[in-house]
Amino acid sequence: MADILMLLASAADGHAEPAALGLDSYQWVGLAMFLLIAVMVWKKVPGMITGGLDARIAEIAKQLDEAKGLRAEAEALRDEYVAKIAAAEKDAAAMREGAQAEADALVAKAKTDSEAMVARRQKMAEDKITAAEREAIAEVKAKVVAAAAAASAKLIAAKHDAAADKALADEVIASL
């Protein structure tokens, strides 16, 4: 131990390199490295490292296979939903066309119904006008007849006497 301390003290002075058992410092480092590698090989550290790496590689390969499976499932789902969307769009287009056709039919029916209603109303109005005309004509005729009868009664009363009555009665009896 004294030799080691002395070597360290002389190294601190910067004069000599440490040496022990006739080996220089770089040789001691080489020997330590050799012993470390020998112990690692003896304890099968490289095998454990490669085994760990192989296990990790197997785990990564398993994860990649799972990822491929998940990707395939996702693509299948995507394709399924694309098909569903296309079917929904086709159904929506069919519904839109059906609704348009129904709306067109309703518009056409409403147009024909409104035209028929206008024609009925016009006919009713014409019938009312015709009835009002007939009523007005009948009313005018009745007034004319009443006026004529009143005028005739006045004329007859003014110009008709008992002798005219006898001649008229004789004429009626002769015609029978």
Rank of each mutant, 00 (worst) to 15 (best):
M1Y: 02
D3P: 01
I4M: 08
I4H: 08
I4Y: 07
I4E: 08
I4K: 11
L5F: 14
L5R: 13
L5H: 08
L5D: 06
M6D: 08
L7A: 09
A9R: 14
L21D: 12
L23A: 04
L23G: 04
Y26H: 07
Q27E: 15
L31S: 09
F34K: 09
F34S: 15
L35V: 12
L36F: 05
I37H: 05
A38H: 06
K43V: 10
V45M: 15
M48E: 14
M48V: 05
M48P: 00
M48N: 08
T50S: 03
T50D: 00
G51L: 07
L53C: 05
D54A: 08
A58K: 08
A58N: 10
E59S: 13
E59C: 01
L64A: 08
L64G: 01
L70W: 02
R71H: 12
A74R: 13
E75T: 13
D79E: 15
E80W: 10
V82P: 01
K84T: 10
A88S: 14
E89H: 13
E89A: 07
K90L: 02
K90G: 08
D91I: 03
A92W: 10
A94L: 05
M95L: 11
G98D: 12
A101D: 14
D104R: 11
A105T: 05
A105Q: 07
L106T: 02
V107S: 06
A108E: 13
A108T: 05
A110N: 07
K111N: 11
E115Y: 02
A116E: 15
A116D: 15
V118Y: 04
V118A: 14
R120Q: 10
R120L: 01
R121Y: 11
Q122M: 09
Q122G: 08
D127N: 09
K128P: 03
I129T: 13
I129F: 12
T130W: 06
A132P: 00
E133N: 10
E133H: 11
A136E: 07
I137R: 15
A138H: 06
V140Y: 15
V140F: 15
K143N: 01
V145Y: 10
A146M: 08
A147S: 06
A149F: 02
A150M: 05
S152N: 07
K154D: 12
L155T: 13
I156M: 13
A157M: 06
D161P: 00
A162M: 09
A162C: 09
A169I: 10
D170P: 00
V172P: 04
S175M: 12
L176E: 04
L176G: 04
